[in-house]
Every structure is written in structure tokens, then in C-alpha cells.
Nucleic acid binder design. Structure first.
Length: 589
DNA sequence: AAACACACTTAGTATCGGATTC
DNA sequence: GAATCCGATACTAAGTGTGTTT
């Protein structure tokens, strides 16, 4: 409540002064109208990198301490029962919990696990346990399965108790005060210890992710706030007051040595403003993209190799929405690439293919080891350049040997203030949605059909950005179920029509209505089936959440009378509150 | 200019929990 | 009332990009 009033008082409303006064009064009179407060996003913003003036929070929630196994759950080595020390046992349970997973059969995973497990053993255990293959974790594994069954079978009351306890923790630790707002924290729980599961072919899979203690934690808050207290008998590593950053808590993780953070929820002011800013940058690119395109096309002819490489890479980033492709330390992570780090082996050139000239075939693993496979006809000049870049190189050599993301981004910065490689992805995603919506929405359609059009526009973006997913395990089944429903509905419709025909004089109107209703239901089901089928291997969520200017979707909803809830669920509406507040029906990206 | 440190966004998948079906 | 389904949410890995140090 209080922040709304403050928002009114400290805001910098532009042309809405009169409205502010009115809403301000309403806020005093009707506290429930608080969510109505649109002016948060127009509060004064800080300059020179200051992110906040006041920050208060309760610190993180730590993982529960290790709960040793009951004595009847045994570990066997070489067929013989062996009582493990608590520390070694804990690490063993991590492995036991994953026994059903394919991971535990992989050589790298087993090797890494075994190595880290040994570090946690007593010297006696170390001398006894010399071969992972002789370890029998099956009783542990069964025990955890039973536990999870027991949890499912708990009484309603017990489940309710747990729910209430979680809610209490959320209320206590899940929020902070940043400046005048109470904000939701995204991840207030410290990651529990366990075995690292990288994605793809990760060289560190199976390594032990160690337990994080208060002594590992750096707390960030404002000096004049109530500082979070470490658990009794412990100390924080450090308490600092850095208002040039947005995080509340950080620690260093032991697998890659990188820093992990606790930050605010996407619904927060600080994230919302950043998000808005991101789309505004992309809209500025829209204004000069043709100039930039003309420039890189020109640069394909440059005398300098580094400029040609830069120009071809930028063309890929623009046309194909590839990621920038930073260098990665070899052997530390899975072997994945983006544009600048493409290697010769990732491209195949086809002078002619399927009746098209100058086709480039891409095949590489991108972020999260998701495969990017695409055959793209390109301009002759690009093709000739690629031939040149690939000349006299080994498959594992860099395609763009005179280029990296730093060089590329420096160049982009000169073309437009704030321009980096990733802005092209945002820009191309959003402009594609806008164009698709303009093109395929039919104002005559009913609501479900319009939503199908929306999802198709969204899908075009997801395909551009290569947002794939493994088809859900139950995909075929769920399609069948839907088809069964459709068949049933068809029969129902036939019945209803028959009835209508027979009742020429009696209750015709209500029968007509019934037919109409069933027809609508049938159509809804059919649309749903089409949507699901087309979505089999495409994930819409990522682009919706990270690449599409929400104002496009909101304006579209307003223009065509679609309730926003049909497009954005509750969380998404919270994240995009800034856009819901500001987008008018004629907004165009 | 390479290496490093840091902060922050983007990403797919596992799990949860409420709705629906049997 | 159990089983199943499915969207929402939690989780945390894996990127991008900037600024500093060597």
C-alpha cells in the first residue's frame, strides 16, 4: 500500500498530472486500487549506475542440513555391507538419487563423481572403496523412491501443513524492500549440494556441488537497513553496501568458479525497467537497420579480411538471429558455438542444392547444446567470402579467424549507441511477431482462431530463434486423447443437428443454440489440436518471455478484443505489468 | 590485447499441484 | 478416490557483454 502513495509523490508524471491527482486520491480512499498504479515506471531513474538508495532483506534460506539414512538402509561394497561416514554417505545419496537417470551410466559422470566422492571419504573408506563398479547404492535408491511415494500419500492435513510452512518462509524471506517498493525475490533459496548436471557433453558432469555455508555468503544491502542475521553461531563472509549492483546475496560456486546471485523477480521495478529499456534499444535499431544492412553488404567487398569477416558474421546474426558466440575455455564446458565462434566443420557450402544457388548448410550445437540445423540460400558475395574464409583450413579451425565478439560489438557500438549483437535477436524476433500478426490476423475470426493466429506468429519467432524442445514423452498419447474428444464432439454435433431437424416446430430456437454451442466447442478443440501438433518440437515460452516486446501482444489484444489472460498467464502479466500499463491499441513495434 | 572478474539475461528441464478423467 | 494430465513454477546452467587487470 505505502509504496503506491510514495510512487505518486515521487513520480515524475509527464502529461498525466491531472490523472495522477485523481488516482492519487483514489489510492488514499481505496487501498485495493493499488495495483492500478501505473506510474511506477515513470519514477525518476538514477544516473551514473546507481541502482537503488535503500535495500533491506532477510538474507538467503539455506539448504536443510544432511539427514542421515536410517540404519536399515545399507550400502554394499563388493557385496558386503559397509557403514559410511556421514559425509561420504551424503555424497553417496546424491548418486543413489540419480541411479535411474542415464547420467549415471556415462563414463565422464562416473569418473568425476568417483573422484569427488573419494575426497569426502575417511582414509579408511578410501582404502576400502577402490572401484565404483563394486558399489551398490540400490537400497538407498529404493529408500528414496519409497520416501517420495510416502510424500505423495500423505494426508491432506499434513500436506496443508507443509504448504503453510512454505508460505511462511516465502513471506519471511521471499520479499525485500528496494527503495519504496516491496519486491518479490526470484531465488531466495541457496542451491542445495548435489552432483553437477551439465547440459550436453559436459566435461564436468558428476562433480560434487558443495554445500554453501553462511561463511561463503556475501550480503548486499544498504547501510541504513536492518542487516540480515546469519544463522546462530555463524558469520557472513562479508556484508557490503554496493548500490551500483542489483543483487542481494552472492556466493562463488565450486564447479566453474563462477559467481551466483540472489536477485529480484521479473515483476520488480528494477527488472521491468531494464526489460523496457532492452526493447527501446531494439526499436532504435529498427530506425537504422537498413543503413547498417547497406553498410555490411558493402563491407563484403572490403579489401580487408577482418572487415569481410565482420560483415559476413553480422549478416548471419541479422538474417538468422544467431547468438554472438563468445570464446569459451576448452575443456571447461560443453563444446558449443555461436556466430563468432563457428568453425569450418559447422558449415557445408553447396554451389547448388534443391534447385537453389549458393546454399549454406549449418550444423552445430548452440547454447544448451541444442542443435542448430539450417539450409540457407545466401547472396553470391557471401558465398564467395565463405569459400575464402574456409580455404586452407582444417575442420576444427575458426571460420572467422580475424573476428571475435569484442571486435564485433565495438563495431556495432560505433553504428548505434547501445548496439550489441544480441540486440539483433531481440529486434528480429519482435519485428517478426509484429509483421506476422499484422499479416495473418483475421478480424472476422472468433477468439480461438485469432489465438491460433497469435500462436502461429509466436511460432515463427521461436523457429527463427531455434527454440526447440524434446517432444513431450506423452505427446502422441495426448494427441490421441484430443482426437478422441474431437470424434466424440462430432458425434454430439450430429445428434444435435438431427434433433434440430426433427423438432421443426418445438423448441427450435433452443435446439439451434445447442447446435451452435457444440459447433463452437468442436472448433475450439480442432484449433487446439492444430496448435498442439504444430508445437510438437517448438517451445514458445522463451521467445515470449525474453524476445517479444510485450507491448506488441498487448496492443494486439486490445485491437482485437482478446482478453490479455488468453495470451499471458498470471506470472507473465506480472512480469509485463509495465507494458500492460503503457501499451495503447495502436502501438507498433 | 589477452585474461580475468563480474553482473546480468536467456534457457531447457524437473517438479509441483490443481484440474480432469476414470 | 485414485490416476492422469498439463500448465505453472522452481531450478540452475549457460549464455552475453562490460570493465579491469596483467
Amino acid at each position: 500500500m505505502f509504496y503506491c502513495i510514495l510512487a505518486v509523490n515521487t513520480g515524475t508524471p509527464r502529461i498525466k498530472t491531472i490523472l495522477v491527482a485523481c488516482v492519487g486520491m483514489l489510492v488514499y480512499i481505496l487501498p485495493s486500487l493499488c495495483f492500478f498504479m501505473p506510474f511506477r515506471w515513470e519514477e525518476e531513474r538514477y544516473t551514473d549506475g546507481v541502482k537503488w538508495k535503500f535495500l533491506e532483506h532477510k538474507g538467503p534460506v539455506f539448504a536443510p542440513p544432511y539427514d542421515p539414512l536410517p540404519s536399515n538402509v545399507k550400502f554394499y561394497y563388493d557385496g558386503k555391507h559397509m557403514k559410511l561416514s556421514s559425509t561420504a554417505e551424503e555424497v553417496a545419496t546424491f548418486f543413489a538419487k540419480m541411479l535411474d537417470h542415464e547420467y549415471t551410466t556415462k563414463e565422464v559422470f562416473r569418473k568425476n563423481f568417483y573422484k569427488d566422492w573419494r575426497k569426502e571419504m575417511t582414509s579408511e573408506e578410501k582404502s576400502k572403496i577402490t572401484d565404483l563398479n563394486k558399489c551398490d547404492f540400490s537400497e538407498m535408491s529404493e529408500y528414496f523412491k519409497a520416501q517420495s511415494e510416502a510424500r505423495k500419500a500423505m494426508t491432506k492435513e499434513d500436506k496443508q501443513k507443509i504448504k503453510e510452512e512454505n508460505e511462511r518462509i516465502l513471506q519471511e524471506y521471499g520479499f525485500c524492500i528496494m527503495d519504496n517498493h516491496k519486491e518479490r525475490i526470484a531465488n531466495f533459496r541457496i542451491e542445495p549440494p548435489g552432483l553437477f548436471r551439465g547440459r550436453g557433453d559436459h566435461p564436468k558432469m558428476g562433480m560434487l556441488k558443495r554445500r554453501i555455508r553462511p561463511e561463503d555468503i556475501i550480503v548486499n544491502c544498504s547501510k541504513d537497513s536492518k542487516h540480515p542475521k546469519p544463522p546462530p553461531g555463524t558469520k557472513w563472509k562479508e556484508v557490503r553496501h554496493d548500490n551500483k549492483v542489483t543483487w542481494l546475496v552472492s556466493w562463488t560456486e565450486n564447479i566453474q568458479g563462477s559467481i551466483k546471485y540472489i536477485m529480484l523477480n521479473p515483476s520488480s521495478r528494477i527488472k521491468g525497467e531494464k526489460d523496457w529499456q532492452k526493447y527501446e534499444t531494439a526499436r532504435r535499431l529498427k530506425k537504422c537497420v537498413e543503413r547498417i544492412r547497406a553498410q555490411y553488404r558493402d563491407d563484403w567487398k572490403s579489401k580487408e579480411m577482418r572487415i569481410r569477416q565482420r560483415a559476413v558474421a553480422l549478416y548471419f546474426i541479422d538474417k538468422l538471429a544467431l547468438r554472438a558466440g563468445n570464446e569459451k575455455e576448452e575443456g571447461e564446458t560443453a563444446d558449443t558455438v555461436g556466430c563468432c565462434s563457428l568453425r569450418v566443420e559447422h558449415l557445408t557450402l553447396h554451389q547448388e542444392m534443391d534447385g537453389q544457388e549458393y546454399v549454406v548448410e549449418f550444423d552445430f550445437l548452440g547454447k544448451d547444446s541444442i542443435r542448430y540445423y539450417n539450409k540457407v540460400p545466401v547472396e553470391k558475395r557471401v558465398f564467395k567470402n565463405l569459400q575464402l574464409f574456409m580455404e586452407d583450413k582444417e575442420p576444427e579451425d575458426d571460420l572467422f579467424d580475424r573476428l571475435n565478439t569484442s571486435i564485433l560489438n565495438k563495431h556495432l557500438q560505433e553504428l548505434m549507441d547501445g548496439l550489441t549483437a544480441k540486440v539483433f535477436r531481440t529486434y528480429n524476433a519482435s519485428i517478426t511477431l509484429q509483421q506476422q500478426l499484422n499479416e495473418i490476423t483475421n478480424s472476422e475470426d472468433n477468439v480461438p482462431a485469432k489465438i491460433l493466429s497469435y500462436n502461429r506468429a509466436n511460432r515463427a519467432v521461436a523457429i527463427l530463434c531455434n527454440h526447440q524442445r524434446a517432444p513431450p514423452k506423452t505427446f502422441e498419447k495426448s494427441m490421441q486423447n484430443l482426437q478422441t474428444k474431437i470424434d466424440a464432439k462430432k458425434e454430439q454435433l450430429a445428434d444435435a443437428k438431427r434433433e434440430l431437424k426433427m423438432s421443426k416446430y418445438l423448441a427450435v430456437e433452443s435446439k439451434k443454440k445447442a447446435v451452435q454451442r457444440i459447433e463452437e466447442q468442436l472448433m475450439k478443440l480442432e484449433v487446439q489440436a492444430t496448435d498442439r501438433e504444430e508445437n510438437k518440437q517448438i517451445a514458445l515460452g522463451t521467445s515470449k518471455l525474453n524476445y517479444l516486446d510485450p507491448r506488441i501482444s498487448i496492443a494486439w489484444c486490445k485491437k482485437f478484443g482478446i482478453p490479455i489472460e488468453k495470451i499471458y498467464n498470471k506470472t507473465q502479466r506480472e512480469k509485463f505489468a509495465w507494458a500492460i500499463d503503457m501499451a495503447e491499441k495502436d502501438f507498433q513495434f
